[in-house]
Computed example of a mutant assay.
Amino acid sequence: MSESPILLTPGPLTTAIETRRAMLRDWGSRDPAFIALTAELRSRLLQVASGEGSHVAVPLQGSGTFIVEAAIATLVGPADKLLVLINGAYGERMVTIARRMGRAVEALRWAEDRVVEPGKVAEALRADPSITHVALVHCETTTGILNPLAEIAAVVAAAGRGFLLDAMSSFGAIGIDLSSVPVTALLASSNKCLEGVPGLGFALVQPAALERAVGNSPSLSFDLHAQWRGFETDGQWRFTPPVQVVAALVEALRRLEAEGGPAGRLRRYQENFDTLWAGMRRLGFALFLDEAVQAPIIATFRMPADGRLEFRRFYDALAARGFLIYPGKLTQAESFRIGCIGALDRRDFERLLEAVAEALRTMEVAA
C-alpha cells in the first residue's frame, strides 16, 4: 500500500507520479518558458475535443465551479435568459450561479435517474423565444448519468440558441467532437478525466461568442472575454497563474495523448467500472442507475434498504485500508459513490473489492 490513499472520488483523484513530479519546478509566470507552456496547454486542450479552428481555449485559475460561473457571467448577458437542463446537483448549481450573477434563468428538470430528453428541450425552446442560452451537464457527477449530448446540441442549434456544456466529468474520456457537435462553450477542469491536479478550470469557446460578450461580466477576475484577450495579446495570464498546476496539467495532457486520447482512456475507465460493478454486485450492492445510462466515470450505489450499513463506519473502514470513497449526493435515496477515474487500473479495483469484503465482515454485514 502506498503512503497516499487511493482516491475513488470524482476529483481530486489519484495522479501519476510523472504528473506530480512536473510540479517540482518553479516557474516565472511572465518568463518566455512559461508563456510557451501556457500556449502548449491551450493547444492541447483544443486537440482533445477537435476544437482547433472553431474554438479558443481560455484557462482560468480555480475549480470547475469557477469556470462555470465565469462562463455564465460572461456569455449570458444582462438582457439574456438561460435555460438549465437539470437531472442532478450540478445543474442546480448552475441555476444558483445565474441568479447570483443577476441573470434571468429557468430550469427544466428530470429525475436523477432519467436522462435529459431532447424532445422536451425543443418544446421548451419553442414555448419561450426569450431564452437565449441553454446549459447542460454532460455527465452528471451526482449519479454518473450520461446525458445525450449530440441530440441536445442539435436541438439547441436548430433553435438558434447558445449552448453551454459542463463537461467536468466527461472531458478527456468520453469523446466530444467540437468540429461536428455545435457547442458554444465547453467547460471543464484539470482534476477529473484529464488526471491533473486541482486548481485550474478552462473554457473552449467559439470566438464570436466571446466577441459578443465584451463588457458582460460583472466580475473583473471572472471575465472570460478579458482573460481571452490577455492570452491573445501577449500569451500571458492577467493575474498570477497557478504555475505548478499548469505544468502538471500539460504533463497530464501529454500522458493522455500517449494513452491514445479519450478513446484509450475510456477503455481503461470502462474496465475499471466493469471490474467494480461485477464485484459490488457479488457483494450484494445495487447501482442507482440503469446500466444503459451509466457512464464509466463514477458509480452511485444504493445503501442497503434495511439499514445494515452505516456510511460513516463503511467509509472509515475503507479509509483504514487505503481507499477513499464519496458520500452520495442524491435527494431521493441513501447512497455512496465510487469513482472509476484517475491513474488507476483494474488491479486497483480488485484490491478495493477485497477491502470492501473485509470491511463488511468487520462490520458484521452479510454480503
Results as ranks from 00 to 15, higher is better:
A185K: 01
L164G: 00
R302L: 15
F273E: 09
F239M: 13
V356P: 13
L256I: 12
R20V: 09
A367G: 07
Y90T: 07
S180D: 09
A286S: 14
E364Q: 06
Q236D: 15
E259M: 11
D128R: 07
K81C: 12
R254A: 08
V205E: 01
S221N: 12
V155F: 03
F323P: 01
V243Q: 14
R229L: 14
A73K: 06
R99T: 15
A263T: 01
V246Q: 13
S217Y: 02
E334N: 15
L8M: 06
A333L: 11
A359E: 00
L283N: 10
A367W: 05
M280P: 03
P148D: 04
V121I: 03
R268L: 03
G230K: 08
G88H: 02
A286N: 11
E291Y: 09
A33P: 08
Y326H: 06
A185N: 08
V181C: 03
V205R: 00
R337S: 07
T19Q: 13
E310I: 04
E18Q: 11
A185P: 10
S63F: 03
A333D: 09
A157I: 06
E18D: 12
I174E: 00
R238C: 10
T300Y: 04
R238M: 13
W277C: 14
G322M: 00
R109V: 08
E106S: 15
A319T: 05
G235Y: 13
P241K: 09
E140M: 03
M168T: 10
V121A: 02
A167M: 00
A127C: 07
F171D: 01
A159H: 06
T362P: 08
V356I: 15
Q61K: 11
I341E: 10
M363I: 06
I341W: 05
L249I: 12
D316L: 13
F288T: 05
I152R: 02
F288H: 12
S190E: 02
A319L: 02
F273N: 08
Q236Y: 12
R103K: 12
S169G: 15
A247M: 14
G230D: 10
D26V: 12
T300W: 00
T362H: 11
T331H: 07
A226F: 13
A295I: 04
G279A: 02
S2D: 15
A111F: 05
L289I: 04
A367N: 05
S169A: 15
L360K: 11
L318T: 07
A70I: 08
Y269E: 01
L324N: 06
S63T: 09
A122V: 04
A278C: 09
L344F: 01
L60A: 07
R21N: 11
